[in-house]
Nucleic acid binder design. Structure first.
Lengths: 209, 209, 209, 209
DNA sequence: GATGAATGAGGATTCATTCAT
DNA sequence: AATGAATGAATCCTCATTCAT
């Protein structure tokens, strides 16, 4: 796992080598997955010899997990600060806006998650336990506090919550699809606004009466 | 005897062994992606020497594409037969039911697609041109014929259509997530029914007044 | 694949398919050597499945040796019929003309020999014992009967004979060189005549006073 | 110490290991050709793992070309320094002596060239353009300045030059033949002297009146 | 005779990782 | 911290050969 030093860098000194490695690895892992990326390529993108990677991370696997760890911290914090008082449409709307804004700043994250979910690998357990489950439970409580929810059967709740997750994350994970099918740039400012509005409307319709 | 022969042909069309290779490759590629699976492993699962794979497919890449080709044929046919007359909720509902039933019979497919979309590789272009685009256009027409659509701004249409795709495919591609977060078996008959109902309700809410 | 009729045509009745295999193998072995040619490629050039080769030759090595055996028979016979009475320039000249004519009909042969010589493999021993040695000895006797020979020291005799061999065979084995360096086609009728004349003059100068 | 360093540099220019790899590869390629030698074997002869080869050369093909490049440099330089003033028999004789001496120090070279010529591969073009052509042109000029040349028709010139090349290189490329046919050791000091004398006499007879 | 399919061995090359410098 | 070099294991793929049909 990353040295304590390296882990602390991102917040304080963003110029550190470990951070640059994490940046490159994040982009590459998101683009082609764990097995699709070689240590040499990550090193190459940072301008390092492949051996140097091991001065900062003990293994490729550890680097991969460090990427996910770093990516998930802020999102978990963001949600932890809002887990309560989500009953009103306005609060929901604000959370969504913040979430989307955050994802727009870390667009690799949804891809990494989606890959991890598809792989169903070991790390998914840790991911679920430490990050996704809290978020899921918070979302569940918030949804349950929604007035119009009565129309959804109890057993549909998980599907409903994951459905909203798909609407939110899918835009990023499937950006290539939107680009090719609709001929638009999924990452243009215009689409950013459109996506935000769409998710707002969609959740309104799904949750409200 | 001629009858029996004739009957057997379609199933053994590409040779029994080739089909078994395709089956094994489909499952493995869906589970761990193209780079995550070795030819040796595919061969092993079929009980073959790895060299034998090359008697049936010229390369790993060709095998991969054959898997996708085979998987997408039926789905394209299914949608081609319904591309018209989707204006009514009943027609939509029937198509959804058939789609979900088909996906339930080929649960690897959504994973393969999602991996291909994440990779954004060369093959995605062919996939888009031949299969996804027609489906997308058909869906677009159907959605445009929906009365309640007025509430969606024109530029949200692609997002809306892809959103429904995510609701539908996400259940399969992210089954591991549902399993871990909600503690349910995404592939139980019970969840199958629940998913169908959920998608119906969700599309109703998204599309109708 | 070719009909039996077509197969029998080339050499009237020289074994049909086996002959066509030998033809293809001869050309390929001459062009790229034993290790540079695969059984599949030989079979492909004949329009056969690679397994069919083994109906005619027990192994790739055996096929290779059969190629050499077939190629050397006529040349040995040619020389055996002339091994005596080579003392006069006219006789020498006639032999050279016949030799060159024969090589021009089997231009792969010098390349095969040169490759075998470079490899210094097992088969070279058989080649030497059965074919090259008799030729060499005949040439030695003929040369020794030459009047002008007195000017060559005894120990230069092997070098002299091999030198003439190089002048003769080198044209074919190094055709690619002549083509690239002099910009001429080594296999044009014009060069054929020129080569014959050159070898005649050269041997004259080397052997005569 | 600085002196010693400086002295050692040329020999270790491309790294001691790289040189040892080149040495082993040169011997093996000369003996059995490009396709006849495996990277593993080259590595084994140097006492390396086969993967280590790739720390010094990007591919087997690149290693092969490096071998030829290295082998040809000195010979080209040797000839470049003599390209002029070759009109006299004495100058010719001295060049021949130097050439033969050089070949005796790099006896693999003629074999490598002959193999490359037989293959007629891509690299032969580079070989011709950069090395053989200059040599050929120099030889042509030198030969044209020879008095006795009048007896050769103009179109025989390329054959004459290549003929002398065959006499010179053939001794090395076909050493196995001389050994087996004449029962002598082509690389004995005695044969070395004999070969030099033979080439001198032969060129005299071919070029002079 | 011909062939599709099977296979063990080996081909070149890349992998993640280690270590001395 | 950085790196060139080394390596065992694994990668995809081709090899010559066999065998049932």
């Amino acid at each position: 796992m990353p040295t304590e030093e390296a882990v602390r860098v991102p917040a304080a000194e963003s110029g550190g080598t470990a951070t640059r490695i994490l940046d490159a690895a994040e982009a590459l892992f998101a683009e082609r997955g764990f097995t699709g990326v070689s240590v040499r390529e990550i090193a190459g993108r940072v301008g390092l010899n492949q051996a140097s990677i091991y001065n900062h991370f003990p293994s490729k696997q550890a680097l991969y997990e460090a990427v996910l760890d770093r990516g998930f911290g802020p999102m978990r914090d963001l949600l932890a600060a809002r887990a309560h008082g989500l009953g009103t449409p306005e609060a929901r709307e604000r959370l969504l806006a913040d979430l989307i804004e955050h994802l727009w700043r870390t667009p690799h994250l949804p891809k990494l998650v989606q890959r991890e979910v598809l792989d169903g690998g070991e790390y998914l357990d840790k991911l679920t336990e430490h990050w996704l489950k809290p978020i899921y439970e918070a979302a569940k409580k918030a949804v349950q506090a929604t007035p119009g929810l009565a129309r959804w059967p109890e057993e549909d709740l998980p599907l409903l919550i994951l459905g909203m997750y798909h609407l939110l994350f899918g835009h990023f994970a499937s950006a290539a699809l939107l680009e090719r099918l609709a001929g638009v740039d999924p990452f243009s400012p215009r689409m950013r606004q459109a996506h935000l509005e769409f998710v707002k409307h969609a959740t309104d319709r799904l949750l409200e009466r």
